[in-house]
Design a protein around this nucleic acid. Structure first.
Lengths: 316, 316
DNA sequence: CAATTACCACCTAGGTGCTAACTT
DNA sequence: AAGTTAGCACCTAGGTGGTAATTG
């Protein structure tokens, strides 16, 4: 084995004809393309001798390469406009669905669609009752929000941002013997608003649409005095993540510490299966198990000893 | 000890009055500020309850926190215009040193200064004869180029870029018994030009001047077919890194695969003590020793066993 | 023979849930 | 009693030079 180094090498076995995708880094750490759309219209494609694209594969689907994955039981992505999505705020209007050729200046937001990645994984958590740990230092979400965006104007510049809003005005507690979340009173007083502006931001529609837009670096905290720019939430409350597409010319009020502005240049999307309850320690053991099973960073807690021992014994 | 976690925590002991610097991340991984200057004039300072700055300390001086450091023997930084620097190309003109108040539109490049960080460390390598390893997959430089920039127009947008140019037209070989580099013939044919555009690029002069601009993610390669955007060099040749300050309105020809454009909107800086010879394996063992001694990632090769064993025995 | 490469052990850096201690 | 926190072992991810094998 020990293919770790190999897969990071320029001419690895995965490199088909110097895939531009490998260069651009659909979702990898490479920031090379970062500056590209930020005021300049430069192309990295000159780096590719073949100029060939290989956009079909997503190098890190759900941060979840678990072999037992049941993703084959259905589509692992989900188009917003088709089934699960609804829009919050007053920005989005899917009601005017038709593509009437009446282009509002500078470019229409109406045809924009946002598709949740790893929808199957989200649904498995949702069926149990998704929990997200929040800590003083900030904790990533698992699963992370990952979306594909279509219908953008390729030459228009956009910010993509995410925030998390309360689902209701209640505080919850987990009742162990019934394995259910119960209302435990009214919500705590509101926390300072925070918006996570995607780090690739200010990029062209073309760039956004080429890649899976991942929010895996976003962190949640319960520290109301947080100075790291993390999203502040109350523990034991229910929240809904939202994704915002913001046209550049409409971003004058955009700030990580102010609510996302509303209006024609902003379109907001959310996915009901991404609702979660904040905790400081997991309540439902099924959630713990699924997290350990799917989050690569928790691999140390997988008791592959127990799970695979009977399988191992079959193979001997 | 185990302060590792602690230093990443919001309210760690290092956080003096919620230092904005900690939030902005002078040189840390935090990309929060990334989008800030890219077309928007947003301020993160609202995240700081005190609004207080603590700009004096540089969290990762030289990626070198070695206690034996002799940096106290002199200034560890070096202002370009004062001693060591010279400019390549035809862009820079330090000859017009005076600050004559005749502002050329849109903003003067004449007062821009670039100061090399970790100059002492660079000099120690330079005195021996700096070597940089190049590999097919790409190798970081150590030391990395790190600079402070002054004299920018705070409200002007700039790209900061780096490239590496041949010092001469020769190929070298290392003669072990004399511990010297000798000319071994003429240089190999030129390699495809590559420019590393700093990932924070397209930011305001204000933002650039606030931080130490570090090129530690830049990688060198000997793979002429590299598709990762690394800087391509020939082994056994002598090179000089250069830093470019490029006004936004002058960046129409800026590309990672084209030479940096010349003209009024571009100013180029270089530091003689950063010249190095490319190798695929270190030639001079003094270089190896200094690298191991100073690069944290090579800590595994520090034979503290041998060095400190006699010291240990003194303590027992 | 000199130069390059692949693989390795050993680091840094940081993301996991567990656990015990602490807080309210 | 319920909720939170700090420290921990165990991971992922990736940057070091050493070493032996390979290349030219």
């Amino acid at each position: 084995m020990s293919e770790r180094r190999r897969s990071a090498v320029a001419l690895s076995s995965r490199a088909h004809a110097f895939s531009v995708e490998a260069l651009i880094g659909t979702n990898k750490k490479r920031k090379l393309r970062d500056w590209e759309d930020k005021g300049l219209d430069l192309s990295m494609e000159s780096l590719s001798p073949s100029g060939q694209l290989g956009e079909d594969e997503d190098p890190t689907p759900c941060l979840d390469l678990h072999p037992d994955s049941e993703q084959s039981t259905g589509s692992d992505t989900e188009v917003l406009a088709e089934r699960t999505s609804c829009s919050f705020g007053s920005h989005s209007d899917l009601t005017s669905g038709g593509s009437g050729p009446q282009p509002p200046p500078p470019s229409s937001m109406e045809e924009i669609q946002v598709e949740l990645q790893c929808a199957d994984l989200w649904k498995r958590f949702h069926d149990i009752g998704t929990e997200m740990i929040i800590t003083k230092a900030g904790r990533r979400m698992f699963p992370a929000m990952r979306v594909k965006i279509t219908g953008l104007d390729p030459h228009q510049q956009y910010y993509i941002a995410m925030d998390i809003v309360p689902v209701d005005n209640k505080r919850y507690r987990y009742v162990y013997h019934s394995s259910k979340w119960m209302v435990a009173g009214n919500a705590d007083s509101p926390v300072p608003p925070r918006v996570y502006i995607h780090p690739d931001s200010l990029a062209s529609g073309d760039t956004w649409m080429r890649q899976v837009v991942s929010f895996d670096k976003l962190k949640l905290t319960n520290n109301e005095l947080d100075d790291q720019g993390h999203i502040i939430l109350h523990s034991m409350h229910k929240y809904q993540p939202r994704v915002h597409v913001i046209r550049k010319d409409f971003s004058s009020d955009l700030s990580p510490t102010k609510p996302v502005p509303a209006g024609d240049g902003v379109k907001t999307f959310s996915f009901p299966e991404t609702v979660f309850t904040t905790v400081t320690a997991y309540q439902n053991q099924q959630i713990t198990r699924l997290k350990i099973d799917r989050n690569p960073f928790a691999k140390g807690f997988r008791d592959s000893g127990r799970n695979s021992s009977w399988l191992d014994s079959c193979l001997h």
